[in-house]
Design a protein around this nucleic acid. Sequence first.
DNA 1: ATGGCATACCGTCATCACAT
DNA 2: ATGTGATGACGGTATGCCAT
Length: 305
Amino acid sequence: MVSVAGSGTGRGSPAVTLVQLPSGQTVHVQGVFQTRQPSVIQSPQLQTVQVATIAEADESAESESVIDFHKRREILSRRPSYRKILNELSSDVPGVPKIEEEKSEEAGTSPNISAMAVPTSIYQTSTGQYIAIAQGEAIQISNPGSDGVQGLQALTMTNSGAPPPGATIIQYATQSADGTQQFFVPGSQVVVQDEETELAPSHMAATTGDMPTYQIRAPTTALPQGVVMAASPGSLHSPQQLAEEATRKRELRLMKNREAAKECRRRKKEYVKCLESRVAVLEVQNKKLIEELETLKDICSPKTD
DNA sequence: ATGGCATACCGTCATCACAT
DNA sequence: ATGTGATGACGGTATGCCAT
């Protein structure tokens, strides 16, 4: 005969069951008969509901259940956020890294304009680079492909040489050893990229060492190809200006969404990795427990003698 | 070498959830 | 009500692998 003496089955703590063997020997069995555990793949929303259900069962039901109905409906209908899911997972499981909350400004996750000093104008070239012209003199260029500081380059105006009438030559020291580039800024809003680089796909431009050159010109009738007007706040009157503003807003939204999508995919990958590693751990654990169970069965199998 | 296939990555759109 | 961020869905592109 085997008697099960007792168990510590508090939620969160592993259940320890005391098994008394016929020989009088007692065995501590940990985790074979564990209390309900959330499935690995289960969303934390569901876990939340489970907990709520358990709580309900414990208490005198009626009063709470009516209130919780709508809440639960809300929870169930809500789409998961990978950050939330992973953070909830990691709060349960030590060793699982949390996804950090964005520290909006100084984090610098997006390599571009958000970190810049109040730019008045933002441009995106056909190669995907962003150019921001601040109120003062600073021009910053960021490569969306690169991250962090590397993608960000500051420019200062030098007012030298013999620029075209009304233009200011800007020298900008690239991080590569060879290059300086000239930007013509007549106080207007257009950045023109040199033709040789204009046709290059964005991923090529991001990876090649030779940097493209740009010109910032007075706007003509139409925007040059490969240039997106991104900002010129101020009075908007004509339908054309309104249309430009709409275009600018759209481009800005697209840009933000692009970044958001990147971030979302990164989080999703991290989340999936986390789940995979958790599956691996649980598989090992499961295997161990099965072996343990078999051993116990062998030991405890009634011998008719 | 080339075409087919699988996979990964990216940008965009639509939609939802939440904040203001 | 509106703006914004997050995310699923979809299509396009790049890349690697394999059979021919």
